[in-house]
Amino acid sequence: MSIVLALILHFEPLCGQTNILVYIEICSLMGALTVMSTKDIGIAIKLTMEGVSQVGYPQTWLFVMVAATCVDTQLIYLNKSLDTFNAAIVSPV
């Protein structure tokens, strides 16, 4: 997460308009966090379906918020990269 913050706060204003990798790295790193938190949400849903309710645990809600934040951030920076660079360059990278 600290790498993502460094990319967003330092490198994106500095070289985001000229280097496509800044946006792609932000999207990729946030995607990794999304996968981990979504897996945790899936486990919480599975346990709830088995009769062990996970609704009362703060970790469940933490993972829901992390997943929502990560997906939102991914979409924002993917759209920024598509606005800044050609889609023919962004998609293969």
Rank of each mutant, 00 (worst) to 15 (best):
I76F: 11
C27L: 08
L82Y: 01
I26G: 05
A44E: 02
V64A: 07
M36W: 00
Q59L: 14
V64F: 09
A6F: 05
F85N: 08
T38S: 12
Q54V: 10
C15L: 15
I8E: 07
T60F: 10
E12K: 12
G31P: 04
M30W: 03
C70G: 11
L33C: 11
V64E: 03
K46W: 01
L82E: 01
G56Y: 07
L5D: 03
A32D: 00
Y23I: 01
I24C: 04
Q54S: 11
V64D: 04
S28I: 03
S53R: 15
K46D: 00
T48N: 09
Q54C: 12
S81I: 05
C70A: 15
E50P: 04
L9F: 05
G42R: 13
A6V: 05
V22W: 02
A6H: 10
T18M: 10
A44Y: 04
F11E: 11
I41S: 04
T38I: 13
F63G: 04
S37R: 12
K46T: 02
G56C: 11
D40H: 11
V66G: 03
L7P: 03
G42N: 03
E12R: 13
S28V: 05
I43F: 01
D83Q: 14
S91T: 10
D40R: 15
N19Y: 07
T34M: 07
A67N: 12
